[in-house]
Simulated scan of single mutants.
Amino acid sequence: MLDASIITVLLIVFVGQASPGPATLSIAATSMGQSRGHGVALAFGIITGSLIWSGSAAMGLAALMMHFEWALVLLKYVGGAYLLWLGYRSWMSSRGVASVDLALNPVQVSSYQRSYWKGFAIHITNPKAIMMFASLYSFGLPAGATSQTVWVIFVLVAIQSALVNLGYAFLFSTPSMRKGYLKLKRPLDRLVAVFFGAAGSKMLLSSSVQN
């Protein structure tokens, strides 16, 4: 039976993973605008990034990295610039015309491999991810927690990340969601562009990584 502290850690991570953000918004837009396969590929990229940050935190590397603020500042600028680029791409996409039937005339803007690396880049350049995992493993674990407890949390977080992100990919690639996307493509693309632009600008303009 899971310890209460482990359940608390999983709940906190779940809220962070399931709440709207660059990762979930990218999965939604990709799954609706391209295909389920592209959304799944992007989700796997995000899952890979999550595993890297979670594993690093479990081994203590994340806590060490947080002591070197220059590394997180550099990561912040890279991530902010990448989000601005995604915002620009989404805004340019909003100027196009949606296909009447995505099933017959799909939007072929990227390969599955590119979708995977896009998801990976979104998550691996997000300094909030490493700070969240570092905080959880540093302060969320009960006193005297064993290495076995740490790795149980790592495995459960990995499973939870896969379920959440792949779940979003399957949810937003359903016919009803794709039909809704066709009707609202322009405002949705612009909403994504504004969100990415705001998130990227905030990351670049913040005075410190903790902000």
Rank of each mutant, 00 (worst) to 15 (best):
M1R: 10
D3L: 08
I7C: 11
I7V: 14
T8A: 15
L10R: 10
L10M: 11
L11A: 14
I12P: 03
V13E: 08
A18H: 04
P22N: 03
A28K: 00
T30P: 00
Q34P: 06
Q34M: 09
S35R: 02
R36L: 08
H38Y: 06
G39Y: 01
G39D: 01
V40G: 00
A43K: 02
A43F: 02
A43N: 03
F44N: 08
G45T: 09
I47H: 09
T48G: 10
L51F: 14
I52S: 05
W53F: 15
G55N: 10
A58K: 08
M59L: 15
M66A: 14
F68P: 06
E69D: 14
W70I: 12
L72T: 14
V73Q: 13
L75N: 11
G80M: 01
L83W: 04
Y88S: 10
S90T: 03
R95N: 13
R95K: 13
G96E: 14
V97W: 10
D101L: 06
N105S: 11
P106E: 05
P106C: 04
S111L: 07
I124V: 06
N126S: 02
P127D: 05
I130L: 06
I130S: 05
M131Q: 07
M132R: 01
M132H: 03
A134L: 02
S135P: 05
G140S: 05
P142Q: 09
P142N: 11
A143C: 08
T146A: 13
T149F: 15
V150T: 15
W151H: 13
F154E: 10
L156R: 09
L156G: 13
V157H: 06
V157R: 04
A158K: 03
I159A: 11
I159C: 09
Q160G: 08
A162W: 10
N165P: 04
L166V: 11
G167I: 11
A169G: 12
F170A: 12
L171I: 13
T174K: 12
R178D: 09
L182G: 13
A193M: 03
F196C: 05
G197E: 01
L205M: 10
S206D: 04
S208P: 00
N211P: 02
